[in-house]
Amino acid sequence: MADFIPGLALARSFYTDVVAALLDMPHSACLIGEGSEVLGYDTPRSTDHEWGPRAQIFVAADQVDRARAVVSAGLPAQHRGHPTAWYSLAEQRVAHHVEIAALDDWLTARLGLNPLAGLDHAAWLALPQQHLLQLTSGAVFRDDSGELTRLREVLRWYPDDVWRWLLAAQWHLIGNAEPLLGRVRETGDELGTRLIEHRLCRLITEMAFLQEKRYRPYDKWFGAAFAELRAAATLGPLIDDVLGGAPGSLPVALIELAERHNDLGIADPVTPVVADFDVGINGAVRPHPVLNSGDFVTATTASITDPALRSLIPVGAIDQLTHTDDALINFSGWPQSLAGCYRAMLSDSSG
């Protein structure tokens, strides 16, 4: 059995030593898209399915058939001890895993659009972060046209106004969840308490990704990716304290998050304050300490230059609004449908 080699390194040598020699036309070559090796998280366990020497090759539309033919005819049976053909879920048979296509067609099949044609705010809000991460991770081995490099530059991070709106929406979600905790504790609901604590810890860690301009992966790699953030050194132990039931640890974690937000310098600074929860109805104030998250929503929203986006209710982008599991991201039309919803709401706001 061949020794394990990280899939990204295997893909690079596979292209350089094998595939490149078969192609006599201008092309781009990379490993992006799905796969733990694209994110650098593959291990020997990953080799049990959809893993091995592989790459994407992008050529002009009129060269796709010829490129496919020469690659299929010229691939050796193995590369560095690993078979170059194995069972393909997409094709339901044993096949090689060199994807060859025109870049526009490949993107449209996966995203329902080509980002190089331009993305409005609605399109950004409906693009799952998992897709954005997959397209900006991995590696480019060659890029004759420069289109692949431009694509990754376009998708590197959200436009500034969209980023600010996502931050405001995340503060809104935190502000909605936090008051529930004291009320549930008050009723003696231990399970409910733990679930809301976990919910808040998740929202805090998601915010850390947004603050550091890093797309977050889906749940399998979420913790590993969080550990790579700068915030992990300080927020990580605080999250551990919250999950471990340490009294008073949640406000400390939220204040740390708030101070990191102020350090971004994107809006008027807000002094973090933990005080009893003001319900905002009938003068009711409950003895449940909460952070002034609403002030961060207000300040961040005020810094958005696009009046339509500034006026949009901060429900969040697709990842904040719903679960983005494999079925939704890769096998449904929900992202495109949500783009239409966001576009309609932004149009209403601008009008």
Rank of each mutant, 00 (worst) to 15 (best):
A2H: 10
D3W: 08
S28H: 02
G35M: 05
T47K: 05
A55M: 14
I57W: 10
F58T: 07
A69Q: 15
V70Q: 10
L75V: 04
Q78K: 14
H79S: 02
L89I: 08
Q92E: 10
D104M: 02
W106M: 06
L119Q: 05
L119D: 03
D120W: 10
A123G: 10
L125G: 01
A126I: 13
L127P: 12
L132K: 02
L133N: 03
S137H: 15
G138F: 01
V162Y: 05
Q170D: 12
L173D: 12
A177L: 02
L195C: 06
E197I: 07
L200G: 02
E206V: 15
M207G: 15
L210T: 12
Q211I: 13
E212W: 08
R214G: 06
A224T: 12
A231D: 14
G244M: 09
V252S: 13
A253I: 00
G265A: 04
T271K: 12
V274S: 02
A275L: 05
R286H: 04
S293T: 15
T298S: 11
T301Y: 03
A302M: 03
R310L: 01
V315N: 04
D319C: 06
H323Q: 15
G333D: 11
S337N: 11
A339V: 04
M345C: 07
G351W: 00
G351C: 02
